[in-house]
Design a protein around this nucleic acid. Sequence first.
DNA 1: AGAGTATATACGTGTCAAGATATATACACA
DNA 2: TGTGTATATATCTTGACACGTATATACTCT
Lengths: 136, 136
Amino acid sequence: MAYIKRVESVFEIIAESNRRAILGLLVSSQQSVGQIERRLRMTQPTVSKHLRVLREAGLVESTVDAQRRLYRLNPEPLQEVDAWLAPFRHFWSAHVDALERHLDRMAQINPPAKKKPKAAKARPVPNRARPKGAAR
Amino acid sequence: MAYIKRVESVFEIIAESNRRAILGLLVSSQQSVGQIERRLRMTQPTVSKHLRVLREAGLVESTVDAQRRLYRLNPEPLQEVDAWLAPFRHFWSAHVDALERHLDRMAQINPPAKKKPKAAKARPVPNRARPKGAAR
DNA sequence: AGAGTATATACGTGTCAAGATATATACACA
DNA sequence: TGTGTATATATCTTGACACGTATATACTCT
């Protein structure tokens, strides 16, 4: 409607779990809207809507194949996230097994639910910069 | 109010630019609420509110120092983001100068505005998986 | 042309988050 | 004790977003 388009940051885009799921699907190969719809158990308009957001953010690209549209990944914008993350990596830099835990989660691509549990709690980490006079 | 607490994913948490700014501030060293407030030009309640969200997500921890609270970073939950990003890295894996661009941006920590321009556009990347019969 | 398939879009609705203002709480210091 | 400082929280308003339903558009095949 308005002429000015709401420019969303990549961070806002991947904040949505369904969109993350879609991106995750496209990692392996391109998919049609219908495939995504079925695999992620989302309604067709919902998929299209998310794809639109992803498309406008440059995270996916589409090709017309007759009646269907094939969507493929374009993860370049994710580099911004990767870059933002950089300074924080120095903190845990030691060893990360989180990646493996992730891949498991990734295998069962199916997070259509609105809220997911998740429980990562804080294990004290090499504390740089501690408070000085914090007694009592 | 409600007994059930809304468990937000880390992705939703860092979707907010002010919160990313706060985390960015804390990378260098711990800060009091007042310092954050001044540096980021946010109102005090807003800062406190965001800090609460970050605290409940385990991204920051606080220590009492008389009347003030010193907040320090705990980036462990960010590992989830890092892990999620992993599969996508294979795509651009080549060479990333995005990190440097980021560090510059990081230097002028001050994104209190709601919408920021940002313009990262898509430079064609090694296209894996291309559509087959897409002609018209 | 007509029917079926695939995808996009228009609306209406409910939920929720962010910010502002006002106020409560906690501590220090005179 | 009273005052000033630092931070948290309550409440209200506003706007954005996600989803569902209905519909439009585009293409294929007979």
